[in-house]
Amino acid sequence: MSEMLALDFMRQAFVAALLAGIAAPLVGTFLVQRRMSLIGDGMGHVALAGVAVGILTGSQPVLTALVAAVLAGVAIELIRASGRTSGDVALAVMFYGGIALGVVLIARSSASNPSNLTAYLFGAILTTSGGDLALLAALTVVVLVVTTVLRQRFFAVANDEEYARSAGLPVLAYNLVLAVLTAVTVVVSMRIVGLLLISALMIVPNATAQLLARSFGASVRWAVLVGVVSSVGGVAVSYEAGTPSGGTIVLIAIGLFLTVTVVTGLVGRARRAAHRRAERHDHEHGPRCGHDAVEHDDHVDYLHDGHRHAAHEGHYDEHGHHHAPEHDRPQEAGTR
């Protein structure tokens, strides 16, 4: 590790990985929520055209890619908001037009070679320059601040757009802001992860987080943690193994997802075996159900025919007999 950190380009690669690992899952959460998991992929396609323009005109590819991705993001939202059935086809034309234009322009430019294209498409650790890094850090701060401040509003709009509209929230404005943030994230991640794999770093850590978290707030934090572990770990492995960083990062993210799937599956099964559901009854416990409420650790149980019932998910758990030590059952570990 210290050997890696002694290298300038590796230090830069690690910082770029950290930035991408933070930004991508933050934005991805809302894309997953809106069932738009693949939209980052499309923006990546269009960003390639921007990269090509940058290379051809001798300006910074990061900036031209940012312009192309932001324009694509705004176009996507406006097409979606118009609700036309032809919108889907319009998006396909835009995405494939973008990547085709990018490939053709990059091939025509004398300043570039085929490995350059591969680096943009699949990520490379050698490509991040110091100047890029300052810009990427600034963009990541923008993503972090905006998603933190607007988190509840993005959540509201993605969760139930119609309710948000009826409550007078500016739905289109929030969707446009989210589209711009997605574009920014595409550009932040493009060096390390590659334009064809960016979407994976937005989505896969969120899939893992859904397995670990029990609330929206917690799932966002888990997603960022998983994203950073994948991207930084991926860069380290990529250096050791000589593999493209983007593919390595995505494989690590998927490996984490599969591992967590298996472990949470086993834990869930053990919990279900350890906790007992109370019998079904045709009413809900509450202040007026007529059953006595008793304090039990951190929650309230209701005394139902001598049994303690505690609310759990949509049902009640059996928390054992009350005032009857000879029948008392051992406290189940998995209940609450």
Partner: peptide, 21 residues
């Protein structure tokens, strides 16, 4: 059916949306 279940959310998180406006 408008209560989308694509991501985890608690009762309190959903109800808090009513305060946003």
């Amino acid at each position: 059916h408008s209560l989308s279940a694509t991501v985890r959310a608690t009762v309190a998180e959903i109800v808090a949306v009513g305060r946003l406006p």
